[in-house]
Design a protein around this nucleic acid. Structure first.
Lengths: 102, 102
DNA sequence: CTCCTATTTCAACAACTATTGAAATGTTGC
DNA sequence: GCAACATTTCAATAGTTGTTGAAATAGGAG
C-alpha cells in the first residue's frame, strides 16, 4: 500500500456520512447493500449518497456491483485490513501501546 | 472515543506532510522532536510545519511541551491506539480479515 | 536591555470538498 | 416502445483546507 493510497483511504473515512456508510456496510458483510438502501439508512439524498459511495469506492474501501436495477455496495475488508495494518506497522512501528488496542 | 474525535483524527492523518510528521515523531518515541527539527526533516517551512503540528495536536494525536526556546512534540501512542482500536472494533466489528493485518 | 533563536500567528489567496436539486443514464416489466 | 424505478452526473454554490511570506510572541545569552 503506497503512502498516497493510505492518505486517500484516511481521507475517505474522515467524513461523517462516509463513516456511517462504512459502518452500515460492515454490518451487512458479504451481502452488502443497494445504494437506495444505504441512502435511507444514513438519511442522505440519493445524489449525496452516490457522491460519498464514489469517494469510498475511489479510495478502494468498497466495491460496487450492478445487480438488476440496483447497485450493491460491499466493504472490502482486505482493503480495510491493509489500511489498519499500515497504521499499526509502518506508521506506528507496532508499538505495544497501539497493538494493545486491537 | 466519540465519532467526531475519530473523524478529526482521521482527517489529521489524511495529509502528506502530517503523515510524514507523525512517522518521524513515531521514530523519535518518548524523546520527541522540536518543531524546528521536524520542519527540517519534512522539508517544510516553519509556518507550514507549525500549522500541521497544530492540526495534529488539535486532533489529540501529538502533545506539545515547551522546553526552553524549543517546543517538543511527541506522538500520543495511546491516542493512536484508541483510533486504531475504534477502526478495528467499533467500525470493522473485529472482522478476522482486518484483525489478521495487525 | 538588546540581540538572537525558536516558534506561532496572521492575512491573502488558491485549491479542494460537500450539498443541493435538476437532468441524464441504465434496467426491468408490460 | 413506454412507463416506472434505481442510480449517477452535472452545475452552482458555500464552506473548508493548505500555502506563502511577513509580522508578532516568547525565551535565553551577553
Amino acid at each position: 500500500m503506497t503512502e498516497q493510497q493510505v492518505i486517500d483511504a484516511l481521507g475517505a473515512l474522515a467524513q461523517e456520512t462516509r463513516l456511517r456508510i462504512l459502518r452500515y456496510l460492515v454490518s451487512k458483510g458479504q451481502v452488502g447493500a443497494a445504494a437506495g438502501d444505504i441512502s435511507a439508512q444514513v438519511s442522505a439524498s440519493a445524489s449525496r449518497t452516490s457522491f460519498h459511495l464514489s469517494a469510498l469506492a475511489d479510495a478502494g474501501l468498497v466495491t460496487a456491483t450492478r445487480v438488476s436495477r440496483s447497485i450493491i455496495y460491499r466493504v472490502d475488508f482486505n482493503a480495510m485490513g491493509s489500511l489498519i495494518g499500515y497504521l499499526v506497522k509502518d506508521c506506528c512501528k507496532s508499538d505495544p501501546r497501539v497493538i494493545r488496542c486491537c
